[in-house]
């Protein structure tokens, strides 16, 4: 009886692993697919017949690093994204603190206004932003990319952090006040550590949005000095060489890799962050 129950539990566990494994494979197939495209010779990709045992080739790898300044694009992407997230956090944390903790006239309207900037189609503001950046002499610079990514993401980063701050019991701040702490000290020593999972979650989402940003990057970056990975992808889609699929796939994989690694490294905080606002524990 007991051994039958044990066997049934083992079978149930195996079934669970099988389902989860199948789901993981389903999610991973696109990633593995474009990695496999990136590591094949170009000729194999455009043949109409399926190739079950593809040839391994580093042609695309050599091409993107030797014929194109991919290192520079990658560096531009990383700098612009990290810079934009830092700008976002510097602005969003005090804004969220104010929106979640202080009472003043129009507070909720201001909160909604901040969020409403996200509701605008990017194309509407593209031309004014181009002229604005040109007048400031910021076209074709990493600084411009940092600012534009930060501006795009600021509203939801503020909103996410605000929702986490609302979950922090007010008693904590009252305790800190009676212990002798001022507002900035409370923010720095009590609130920020308490909402760290929320800050990490907002940062990762901002990074993902930033790395995928294409329209404004194309508008602002006109030379490889400011090209990022997303714009670099476009370089392989035209010109006399035609569409270079294996290079596109490999660059896409390289663009995906940093965010993937960040998510894996902070997975514990991220999963806590994504659920913290939802369930009070």
């Amino acid at each position: 009886m007991a051994s039958a129950r044990k066997r049934s539990r083992g079978e149930s566990l195996a079934l669970r692993y099988a389902i989860l494994g199948a789901w993981a494979l389903f999610c991973l197939v696109p990633v593995l697919w474009f990695l496999s495209i990136g590591l094949r010779p170009r000729i194999e990709i455009i043949t109409p017949q399926p190739i079950y045992f593809p040839t391994f080739s580093l042609d695309a790898w050599h091409m993107i690093w030797e014929d194109w300044p991919m290192g520079k694009y990658l560096r531009n992407s990383v700098l612009a994204i990290i810079g934009s997230v830092i700008i976002d956090l510097i602005l969003a944390i005090p804004a969220a603190y104010s929106l979640s903790r202080f009472e003043y006239k129009g507070r909720d309207d201001i909160g909604f206004y901040i969020l409403s900037t996200r509701m605008m189609a990017p194309a509407i503001v593209a031309v004014p932003i181009f002229f604005l950046f040109r007048n400031f002499g910021l076209l074709d610079t990493i600084w411009a990319l940092m600012l534009i990514y930060a501006a795009i993401n600021l509203s939801f980063v503020t909103w996410i952090i605000r929702s986490y701050m609302l979950d922090i019991p007010k008693e904590l701040e009252d305790a800190a006040k009676t212990d002798g702490a001022g507002e900035l000290r409370i923010l720095w020593e009590i609130i920020i550590p308490a909402i760290l999972p929320g800050i990490i979650t907002a940062s990762v989402i901002a990074m993902i949005f930033a790395i995928n940003e294409f329209l404004f990057t194309l508008l602002i970056a006109s030379t490889p000095d400011a090209y990022t990975m997303s714009v670099a992808l476009a370089n392989f889609t035209g010109g006399s060489d035609g569409v270079i699929y294996n290079a596109i796939a490999l660059v896409a994989f390289l663009a995906f890799l940093p965010v993937f690694l960040v998510v894996v490294l902070i997975q514990k905080h991220l999963s806590r962050g994504l659920t913290m606002g939802a369930v009070k524990g």
Binding site: E171, A175, T178
Partner: peptide, 13 residues
């Protein structure tokens, strides 16, 4: 003054 709160209000970090 020093205050003790109903929910303890210990700093979790």
């Amino acid at each position: 003054v020093a205050m003790v709160f109903q929910g303890y209000a210990l700093y979790p970090n």
